[in-house]
Amino acid sequence: MPLVHGELHRLARHYMAGERAGHTLQTSALVNEAYLRLIDIRQVRWQNRTHFFAMAARTMRRILVDAARARGNQRRGGDVVKISLEDAVVVAPNRRQDLVAVDEALERLQAVHPRQAEVVELRFFGGLTLEETASALDVSVDTVKRDWRFAKLWLLRELDGKATS
């Protein structure tokens, strides 16, 4: 299903747009891995695009977190320069941006507030919009917004809590 592959690639390019050299390579690598790790697509009937993205989000999460772990990009909170947020995107190596830490916290969230954790997986790892997330979970956009907000609070508390303990 080359179209699907293209979708993933397009998603990846969004994220990588404006990034530095070498990323084209990495984008492809990441996307290819995601694509390949999905169930053999010829055997699955994708209900619709959103269903696919839900699967992709899960897979993407595994891949990105595995990659982050492999890179050893885990940092102890506090030993790097704290850069305050001006814009939507920041690269400041702190626990909040540590994919492995976020992933672990998300797992714990899943145990307690499953649907809220799912929203995070779809939006953060899968890049789905509010509408797409609502469609994938079969709830209203408002519900997604509330879940998203709550989930972030919960995760932040987990992450900050672990940093200080």
Binding site: L11, A12, Y15, M16, E19, R20, G22, H23, Q26, T27, L30, M60, R61, L64, A67, A68, R71, G72, N73, L85, A88, V89, V90, V91, R96, Q97, L99, V102, V120, R123, F124, F125, G127, R149, K152, L153, L155, L156
Partner: peptide, 21 residues
């Protein structure tokens, strides 16, 4: 919370790759 997770995981990973850890 407002600014948390606004960067998609992909991009975070991308930066991780760029800086090479």
């Amino acid at each position: 919370a407002e600014r948390f997770l606004t960067t998609p995981a992909f991009e975070v990973a991308a930066h991780g790759i760029a800086t090479g850890g």
